[in-house]
Simulated scan of single mutants.
Amino acid sequence: MAESTAVVEGLCFRYGSGPPVLDGIEFAASPGEVVGLLGRNGSGKTTLLRLLAGLIQATAGQLATSHLPTVVFDRTPFQESLSGRENLLLGLALRGRGELAEDVPRWLAAIDLSDDADRPVAEYSLGMRRRLAMVEALSCGPQLTLLDEPTLGLDPQGRHVLGELLRASASDGGTILIATNDAVFAERECSRIVILGSGQILADGPSSDLIAALNAPTIIEVELDHDPPSTTPPAGLTVISTTLESLVVTGASASSQLPELCAWLSEAGGSVRAIKIREPGLDDVFHRLTGTRLRSEDGEMR
Results as ranks from 00 to 15, higher is better:
213 A>E: 15
55 L>P: 01
67 H>Y: 15
134 M>R: 02
16 G>C: 10
112 D>W: 07
13 F>W: 13
130 R>Y: 02
245 E>C: 13
247 L>P: 01
201 I>R: 08
208 S>G: 00
108 L>S: 06
255 S>C: 05
291 G>T: 06
229 P>D: 02
296 S>Q: 13
49 L>A: 11
122 A>G: 03
283 D>M: 08
93 A>F: 06
182 D>K: 12
111 I>C: 02
276 K>Q: 13
192 R>K: 12
72 V>P: 13
27 F>C: 10
273 R>G: 10
101 A>P: 01
134 M>D: 05
167 R>F: 00
295 R>G: 05
241 S>K: 06
177 L>K: 11
211 I>Y: 07
122 A>F: 04
42 G>L: 05
209 D>C: 07
65 T>E: 04
75 R>Y: 00
91 G>T: 11
5 T>C: 09
66 S>H: 13
206 P>Y: 07
41 N>G: 05
204 D>L: 14
89 L>A: 12
89 L>M: 11
217 P>G: 07
226 H>L: 06
131 R>D: 08
245 E>H: 14
20 P>L: 01
280 P>Q: 02
281 G>K: 03
205 G>T: 12
123 E>P: 00
263 A>P: 00
143 Q>F: 00
63 L>T: 05
257 Q>C: 01
204 D>A: 12
164 E>M: 08
218 T>H: 09
47 T>S: 03
32 G>A: 10
288 R>S: 14
209 D>A: 15
1 M>N: 04
93 A>Y: 05
130 R>L: 06
131 R>Q: 13
155 D>V: 00
269 G>K: 08
208 S>Y: 01
144 L>D: 11
176 I>S: 11
293 R>N: 00
85 R>M: 01
28 A>Q: 15
300 E>I: 08
211 I>P: 03
149 E>P: 14
17 S>V: 08
